[in-house]
Amino acid sequence: MHSMVIHEDSMVDGIPLSQFAPKQCASESLPTLFLYHGWDSAKDQYKELYLIRVFDPIRKIADLPHRPILLQHGTSDCIVPIDGQRKFYKELRKVYEGKSINLVEFQEIPRTNHYISLGMFEYAYKWIKGQLNG
């Protein structure tokens, strides 16, 4: 596995790398965005960041069908910063404004890193069951 430090002034698809907001875990010295991938070159890193940007769901939020959406995110997630999820939820609420607003739910799970807990799974199961029965 290769890890590489990228300069803060680097650009991806004309976007400053700082907008990708890599976050450091308390136990790691490098941004985790770059720690868990086995890149062979800086070119591979930029390609990965470009694909993340292209497939970011916030870019296609207006095209989402109005259906129930449950978002769950750990407040201590050091792989995917929670701020992106908060922004997505805020924009999603604008799209769902009106009679569909109750279809969107966002849970911030305290002290939870980048994993799904049993409690999150159980809540999601009950939530989906309620959506199907409701």
Results as ranks from 00 to 15, higher is better:
3 S>N: 11
44 D>S: 06
42 A>V: 09
75 T>V: 01
76 S>P: 12
83 D>C: 09
86 R>C: 05
47 K>G: 00
109 I>C: 04
27 S>H: 09
100 S>R: 00
73 H>D: 07
93 R>K: 14
98 G>P: 01
66 H>K: 13
4 M>L: 15
122 E>S: 13
27 S>K: 13
21 A>W: 15
84 G>M: 12
113 N>E: 12
20 F>R: 00
71 L>A: 03
125 Y>W: 07
101 I>W: 00
128 I>V: 14
8 E>G: 13
77 D>M: 07
49 L>I: 02
36 Y>E: 03
17 L>T: 08
92 L>H: 06
125 Y>D: 10
23 K>N: 07
96 Y>R: 02
111 R>C: 08
97 E>H: 06
57 P>W: 15
99 K>I: 14
75 T>L: 08
51 L>V: 01
77 D>A: 09
115 Y>T: 13
63 D>V: 01
48 E>C: 11
130 G>W: 03
99 K>N: 12
84 G>A: 14
29 S>F: 01
3 S>D: 09
98 G>M: 04
55 F>D: 07
75 T>M: 10
58 I>F: 05
50 Y>L: 03
117 S>C: 08
40 D>V: 02
117 S>G: 10
58 I>V: 13
132 L>V: 02
112 T>L: 12
96 Y>S: 06
8 E>P: 03
15 I>G: 02
87 K>H: 13
69 I>G: 01
70 L>V: 01
88 F>Q: 04
122 E>M: 08
4 M>N: 12
28 E>S: 10
103 L>K: 08
41 S>W: 03
13 D>G: 15
133 N>E: 14
